[in-house]
Amino acid sequence: MSSSWTGLARGAVAGAAGTTARGTTTYLGGAVRGRAAGPETLRNPWERTGRLSAPGPLAATATGVAIGSAAGVLRAAGLRLPTVIGGPLLGLAAMAAAGGPLTAWRISDPRTWSTTDWVADVVPHLVYGVATHATLVAVSRVAESREPVPPGSPATLLRAAALGAATGSRSTAGVTAIALTSGRDDPGAVAARLGSRAGTVISALAAAGELVADKLPATPSRLALPGLLPRAVLGATSAAAMARRNQYDTTLPALVGLASAGAAAALGVRLRAAAARRFGSDKPGAFAEDAIATLLGWLGARRAGRRAALITAEPLAR
Rank of each mutant, 00 (worst) to 15 (best):
S108H: 07
I67M: 06
H125V: 12
G87N: 04
L52P: 08
G7H: 10
P226R: 12
G86C: 05
L296N: 01
V119W: 01
L163A: 11
T156R: 11
P284H: 00
P57Q: 06
A54V: 11
A224S: 14
S69F: 02
P253N: 14
A160W: 00
A286C: 11
A76Y: 02
A54G: 08
A98M: 01
R307N: 13
T135D: 04
L52Q: 15
W46Y: 12
A243E: 01
S53V: 13
P284S: 04
A288D: 13
R277Q: 12
A76G: 13
I202W: 05
F279G: 15
H125C: 11
A192V: 14
V73K: 10
A173S: 12
L211M: 13
A241E: 00
G168T: 09
S114V: 09
G297C: 03
P55W: 00
G297L: 00
A120F: 07
T172N: 12
S108Q: 11
A160Y: 03
L316Q: 12
D249E: 14
T172S: 05
P230A: 10
A160R: 08
P124N: 09
A232F: 00
A192I: 14
A59R: 09
L267Y: 05
A16G: 07
S108F: 04
G18N: 06
L271H: 12
A191N: 04
G86H: 00
A131P: 13
A213E: 10
E40S: 14
A131L: 03
S4F: 06
L229K: 08
W105K: 14
G78E: 07
R231P: 12
A208C: 13
S140F: 00
D214R: 04
A66Y: 05
R222M: 03
G152M: 03
A120T: 15
P220R: 02
A155C: 08
G227D: 05
R141N: 15
R244D: 07
W298L: 14
T200S: 12
S169H: 06
L229S: 04
Y27I: 09
S196A: 10
V130C: 03
L225Q: 07
L157V: 13
L234Q: 03
T6R: 10
A54C: 10
R307H: 15
T6P: 02
R35W: 08
P151F: 07
R277P: 04
S145F: 03
L81H: 05
I67A: 02
A31Q: 10
P82F: 06
E47A: 11
R170A: 09
L271E: 14
L205C: 08
R244S: 10
G86E: 01
A155R: 13
L299Y: 06
R75H: 09
G18Q: 00
W5I: 15
D117S: 10
E47S: 15
A36Q: 12
T19Y: 01
G29C: 02
P148W: 01
V175L: 13
G280C: 10
G91P: 02
T156I: 07
L89P: 07
S53A: 13
A274L: 06
A313N: 09
P230D: 06
T49I: 02
